[in-house]
Simulated scan of single mutants.
Amino acid sequence: MTEVVFVHHTSDVSGAERVLLDLVAHGHRCGDVVTVVCPRGPLTELLPGAVRHVAIPSLGLGGAQGLRRGVAAAEYAMRSARAARVIGRTHGDRHIANSLLALPALRSSGRTFGYLGHDVAHRRSQRAILRLSRRALSGAVAVSAETASPLRPLGIDCRVAVNGTTWPVPARTVELGRPPVVGMLALLTPWKGHHVLLDAVADIPGVHVEFAGRALPADRGYTDDLRRRARRPDLRDRVHFLGHVPAATALARWDVAVSASIAPEAGPLAVLEAMAHGVPTVATDHGGSRSYLGGTGLLVPPNDPAALASALDRALGDMPLRRVLSAASRERIAEVHDSTRTIPALYNALVHDTASDE
């Protein structure tokens, strides 16, 4: 039996938090004693009853810009210091940072810890946090090769253990709906690139767009911008905001799934879910989307509506291609990304393979 402590910076629930919940449940089934250190909120409400929760302040930066960003950074440093004191008192055989923004608190706690990389460190600020934390790191596990790539030049020992998704699941028919629908499974936040998809579909008459995902409070302005864009004549009555719905429900309606992120995603679960259901997928050519698709989808440059529109035309209009992509993506999920195998492998890599004595 191992006492495992996961530390996470937020209680909002998105992809990294869903992976955390799967890891926690697996650890509990294995007989380990699992503690989750994170702010109170939606994530803590989803923890299994036998899992201990220890509360800390939110360690997010809140999307602040300009002068406000400096104030937010100072507030973040103070909250990290308070969290470090809590983490220092939390007993465990193995401490694991489940997010990059949790690293400073763990470093200041005096603990040796592992790191699960859910972020592609493409910004200088991210790499600075990693440099400051690396001496306390016993090792890191990245959810894609693209996530591991920026860590190794920093001298961080890193291995790759990929994300997975539920398998098997029913396949969506490759026949086009009337009207054809393209969709995105993602929080309504600027870096996910919903606005790029809207500009692309504006040039494809008759195609509808569905967004399945909610907005965080800090991103309500972005959601308002999307709704205003959707009301313009070239998109009017063709864009639908579904809110939070189960992935399977949304994917059953879609002819093409899109990941339009303008910043690289480490291990996009939405891409895996679309692949599992055999929905042809178009994604931006950076981050983990490239290796996850593995040639079973179409890739486009980020922030390029014209390229995205061209790829959507192909994915919607070429029926033989649709059949090939659908079958190949489901085969890849079965071989590489079945969560009944990926979650145990990820947990073992974090808890055992990168462990060191406290």
Rank of each mutant, 00 (worst) to 15 (best):
G66P: 03
A74T: 03
R52N: 07
E45G: 05
L67R: 11
L47E: 01
G60P: 01
R52G: 03
E45Y: 02
A64F: 01
E45M: 04
P48F: 04
P57M: 14
E45Q: 09
I56S: 01
G63N: 08
R69V: 03
L46V: 01
I56L: 05
R69N: 10
A72V: 09
A73Y: 15
H53L: 10
L43M: 03
R68E: 14
S58P: 04
E45F: 01
G63R: 01
G49K: 09
R69D: 09
L46G: 00
L43F: 02
L59H: 07
A50P: 07
A50C: 10
G70N: 08
H53G: 07
T44H: 03
A64G: 02
T44K: 03
Q65W: 10
A50W: 07
R68W: 07
L61C: 06
S58Q: 07
L47M: 05
G63V: 01
G60S: 15
G60I: 11
L46S: 01
A64K: 00
G70S: 12
R68G: 14
A72K: 06
P57D: 13
A72L: 08
G70R: 13
R52E: 15
L59E: 01
A50T: 15
P42T: 07
V51E: 02
G62T: 13
L61K: 14
H53W: 11
A74G: 05
A73N: 10
P42W: 03
Q65C: 08
V51D: 08
L59I: 10
R69C: 09
L43D: 00
L61P: 00
V71N: 04
L43Y: 01
A74Q: 04
A55K: 05
A50Q: 14
Q65Y: 09
L43T: 00
E45V: 06
V51C: 13
L46E: 01
P42I: 10
A50H: 07
G70D: 13
V71R: 14
V54F: 13
A64Q: 01
P48N: 06
G60F: 03
